[in-house]
């Protein structure tokens, strides 16, 4: 297994289809044991260079929720209406985790976020 020894894990690329609801499930384990994610805050931006096209957070209606399996799973969601406003292309994103007690911030992973253009557009 390839382990990033400094900084976030690399290679967590994701491809989505413009106009479709996006959902991704993130499980994080520490030394093989699921972390209790719901104690922490998470924040993620998808960028085209300096321009933020989407930001997801664990704030209310922020797009990141916790799914309560043992330890917790993050659910990243972008609704179809928002997805239909995004331009096709290859973007970059990463995910920051802020620890509740210590305030320590760790960027856990990063990767490419590819949006493929859709054919069927939303009804006007």
């Amino acid at each position: 297994m390839a382990v990033s020894l400094s900084g976030p894990a690399l290679g967590l690329d994701t491809s989505v289809y413009r106009g479709d609801t996006m959902e991704r499930y993130i499980q994080i384990k520490r030394n093989g044991v699921e972390e209790q994610l719901s104690d922490h805050q998470f924040r993620m931006q998808i960028r085209s260079n300096l321009v933020v096209i989407v930001e997801l957070t664990t704030a209310a209606n922020g797009g990141i929720t916790f799914e309560q399996t043992p330890g917790g799973v993050l659910v990243l969601a972008i609704d179809a209406a928002k997805m239909s406003t995004l331009n096709p292309g290859v973007y970059q994103y990463d995910m920051q985790q802020t620890y509740a007690v210590t305030g320590k911030v760790k960027t856990r992973f990063r990767g490419n976020f590819t949006i493929t253009d859709d054919v069927t557009k939303p009804q006007s």
Binding site: M1, A2, V3, S4, L5, S6, G7, P8, A9, L10, G11, L12, D13, T14, E23, R24, Y25, I26, Q27, I28, K29, R30, N31, G32, E67, T69, V73, K106, R108, F109
Partner: peptide, 21 residues
């Protein structure tokens, strides 16, 4: 897809899935 990183001496394993676990 599963990727790995280190946090001090801990191994962090991150898995992204398009369907619920």
């Amino acid at each position: 897809v599963t990727v790995f990183t280190k946090d001090d001496e801990d191994v962090i394993e991150i898995t992204m899935s398009v369907i619920p676990f």
